[in-house]
Design a protein around this nucleic acid. Sequence first.
DNA 1: TATATAAATTGCGTATCGTGCAACAATGAA
DNA 2: TTCATTGTTGCACGATACGCAATTTATATA
Lengths: 263, 263
Amino acid sequence: MPAKKNSQVPFIQSLDRGLTILKCVALSQQPVSLGEIAGLLSIDRSSAFRLAHTLRRRGFLACPPGRKDYVLGSSMWTLSHQYDWSNMLVKVAHPELKRLATEINETAHLAIREGKSALFIDSAHATHVIAVAGQTGELVPLYCTAHGKALLADADEPELRAQFGPGPLQKFTKNTITGIKALAKECSDIKKRGYATDESEYGAEMRCIAAPIRIGDQTIVGSIGISAPASRFAREQYSAYGAEVCRVAQRIGKFLNNPDANS
Amino acid sequence: MPAKKNSQVPFIQSLDRGLTILKCVALSQQPVSLGEIAGLLSIDRSSAFRLAHTLRRRGFLACPPGRKDYVLGSSMWTLSHQYDWSNMLVKVAHPELKRLATEINETAHLAIREGKSALFIDSAHATHVIAVAGQTGELVPLYCTAHGKALLADADEPELRAQFGPGPLQKFTKNTITGIKALAKECSDIKKRGYATDESEYGAEMRCIAAPIRIGDQTIVGSIGISAPASRFAREQYSAYGAEVCRVAQRIGKFLNNPDANS
DNA sequence: TATATAAATTGCGTATCGTGCAACAATGAA
DNA sequence: TTCATTGTTGCACGATACGCAATTTATATA
């Protein structure tokens, strides 16, 4: 993008500033003081005060009891909970999903976490006629699928134990990981490597690779990956495809953070 | 509050309008057109357009590909995911929690769902010296505690099966519900009745009552309840205490929606 | 406790910025 | 095609949001 061909549509200054405040408060882990807000926007304290005040009266900001600095308010909570976010992720990720599918020429999937399962919320098929498991809407276990394990990548052993209980996990195939300890090791490997694999751990004769989609390089909000019959998907391709899947996942994450990005 | 002693702090009109748009789009299940926005605020279409435009450029709104109406954008997604919301719920609910504890004169707890468990995020103790189980930070199973079952109240049988698997659930006491079907029945009863009970289903000799906290009378975001040794908490008190716990839960939910409400 | 320093909040005049009007473009229906 | 609806841009007026400065409130220091 050589020159900002920014539309001439005038910006509503005060709204823009208000949104900046909102973003800044949301991303800060500590409460934000008025002075910081004013400094950030390079505006007078009084202006910052009035903006923050309207945000507060609308419930988008709030003051911790007794304190006079700002944290996010309940409106943000309410709105974000009532909205069906999977649509959002689908919308953002779909072009990438399609690119991935045609590039690798296999089926690509998009999944989110839904309780103890991974839920496929979108897919893009390649030219192959042979349908692959994992239709949109399908729920699969977290601990024995590539998507599921990608979604679990940040979990440590205590967390996994809280999720799945202490007992051994259900065995679907001879490759299924059934021990929590082994699963924790797997997760930390996935986190290092960037992508998760599924060596026929749930469905037989299936290979799958998936990478977690992170916002702000932190919280995992979904996963993207490809799957194919083991016969068509050799183990030697893991590292190459894995890198590609990671790149796509990162791009989606980046786009979620910064919608202005190119393309 | 007889007269609005509303602070004289002037409202930033355009910011206020922008936030209204945000709220309206978030609450609508369908995409919202420009005309609707303009109508809602009783402003000119051009003004609505410019407000929506700034919201869009900041990522708070977005247009579905090809269409020209608005849905929530990725910024809302990002911000709401990066923020630690449990603090928010704690902050809003704590006064009510304390009121409840002193009113009933037992320990009151606040919990949220954390995967397959309920997580206690706050508590208020009464004057009794005898400590009750369920410290803040403790994780307990969803299916055999009052808080857990309150959090599950909206789940139907397929959903429960997806969460817990088909097999029988772990038995902690002689009262623990172990069948999914029975659990589904219990959940639908809870939904009708408004509150969940725990008849020593997890910890022995303990009774507990909890009600789901809902935003917009819909999505369950947490639970509030009281617990006491069975010796101090007779079964006859269920309906009275249950009603009270429901009232408190509703009040918290209402407050989350509308922070301006009377304290 | 008193005093000093900083931060939050309010009043006010002015220039800016947002607004509505009206013209224009794009889209879709008949 | 025309007509009707909705989205988008130009423009001029005036409401409004801004910064300055004064006042109140909170926090630190002696």
